[in-house]
Design a protein around this nucleic acid. Structure first.
Length: 419
RNA sequence: GUGGCCGUAGCUCAGUUCGGUUAGAGCACCUGGUUGUGGUCCAGGAAGUCGGGGGUUCAAAUCCCCUCGGUCACCCCA
């Protein structure tokens, strides 16, 4: 392609129609679904003080190398948000809405990394956060919302993986047990995993490298290291999901990348996607995060779903197709355009979707544009019609021909025909 | 951050192996065939610094180097 002077920055892209319409429809659908459970929208800023995101964990990739951080003109260290949970919890700490605070969001996040299929430097997520209750049924509600949303899109091949990391104490104890185990088997681990082991033993379990598979399979199971409370919480989540007929797989190695997670964690994967990026959503509990942001200790649970990946999954399953027509009526005017100007305005004010031709082109050319527009009807104004105070109405989607009607009747006739 | 593959009209691509006349095709676009009527068909037209820079050569889309971009994978995650 001839290189344009400028192109969208690396890892970003322009979303044009019809993709933009599909993205909008997905977000609208999400708002509908979570609206049925009383979640209200929150719109946090797209950047925060760097410290807000450093709460995600110093050892996480997101914080270590993927942060879009910079110094603003006032000398403040700020960063584009790599995810929205931290921002939402910060907003909770700042505004102290009365718990339970159940909120949803949709918008872009930013991570500095190399793009690949389903992964961009700017990417949209939709998600919910629910702060206040510790009730395991809230975990189930949150998971169920994501599940119902996928169903509403028509997705059938979505898998739910579930795990519990236990409370903060369980988690810390397990990490030591795991570190000991992995260290004892360091000879059998890949080089990459040895590096991960230093920084964050839990995430070694996340490795997809074949060389690590055996060691990971035989690793101590976190579910055997849960406190009674954490274990009971997990059981209650599972019972709730069973009650709701939501199928899941317990995956003890599911640890997820952010350090704030405790107790319930979960991830949604599309079985229809064969790309490496098959995780289409995930979330969990973060009971300690609000306190870290300066709020009174407040439990929280939520999820984030990747808009792009969800749409990829929809493509793979052939559901949630593109938008239908954008125009109902197309006005063709070969008398100079004044009638087109007047009629489009008249019809639009009545709520019809109307477009017209420009540049006073030939009727043939205007008819071609009318056809391409996807409109169902063409209103044609030629000199004969103009003189007689009439317009021709032509069906563009069938072969029923055309009729001549008085301009005064146009709106009524169109409404009838478009019914 | 690491590695593989790929950059030729708006889009999808041929041509690159063994360098050589004005760089091609399909789709899309424009005009005409049809002095008023689209969707099919026919004819014609417009459209390309062959991603960019440097080098080798009488001659480079084609060979070499660098660079930018895309893509896929690793890492990690949505």
């Amino acid at each position: 392609m001839a290189d344009p002077i400028y192109r969208a920055p690396k890892g970003t892209r322009d979303i044009l129609w019809p993709d933009s319409a599909r993205r909008r429809a997905l977000i609208d659908r999400f708002a509908e679904v979570v609206g049925t459970a009383g979640y209200t929208e929150v719109v946090p800023p797209m950047f925060e003080h760097l410290e807000v995101f450093q709460r995600l964990g110093d050892a996480t990739e997101v914080v270590r190398k993927e942060m879009y951080d910079f110094e603003d003109k006032g000398g403040r260290r700020v960063a584009l948000r790599p995810e929205q949970t931290a921002s939402v919890v910060r907003a909770f700490a700042q505004h102290r809405p009365t718990p339970p605070w159940k909120t949803w969001y949709a918008g872009p996040n930013f991570r500095y990394e190399r793009a690949q299929k389903g992964r961009f430097r700017q990417f949209d997520q939709v998600g919910v956060e629910a702060l206040g209750p510790e009730d395991a049924h809230l975990d189930a509600e949150v998971i169920a919302l994501a599940w119902r949303f996928y169903q509403a899109l028509g997705l059938r091949q979505v898998g739910l993986q579930l795990n519990s990391l236990g409370g903060p104490g369980d988690r810390a104890r397990y990490i030591e047990t795991l570190r000991d185990y992995l260290t004892a088997h360091r000879e059998e681990l890949t080089e990459e995993s040895l590096a991960t082991l230093e920084a964050n033993p839990l995430r070694v379990l996340d490795s997809k490298r074949d060389g690590d598979a055996e060691v990971i399979a035989a690793a101590p199971n976190i579910l055997d290291h849960l406190s009674d409370e954490a274990s009971a919480h997990f059981d209650r989540v599972r019972e709730a999901l069973d009650t709701l007929d939501i199928t899941y797989t317990v995956v003890p190695s599911l640890v997820r990348g952010l350090d704030y997670y405790v107790r319930t964690t979960f991830e949604f994967t599309s079985e229809a996607l064969d790309a490496a990026q098959d995780a289409i959503g995930g979330g969990g509990r973060y009971d300690g995060l609000a306190a870290e942001m300066g709020a009174p200790a407040t439990p929280g649970v939520g999820f984030a779903l990747g808009v792009d990946r969800t749409l990829l999954a929809c493509d793979a399953e052939g559901v949630f197709g593109g938008p239908t027509g954008v125009i109902d009526v197309f006005v063709v005017d070969t008398t100079g355009g004044h009638e087109a100007l007047r009629l489009t305005d008249l019809l639009r004010r009545s709520g019809l979707r109307v477009d017209r031709a420009w540049d006073d082109r030939s009727m043939k050319a205007q008819m071609k544009v009318a056809d391409r527009s996807g409109a169902t009807l063409a209103v044609i104004v030629g000199t004969e019609e103009l003189d007689a105070g009439e317009v021709a109405l032509r069906d563009l989607r069938g072969d029923t021909g055309q009729e001549t009607i008085a301009v005064g009747n146009l709106l009524d006739v169109l409404r009838e025909r478009l019914r």
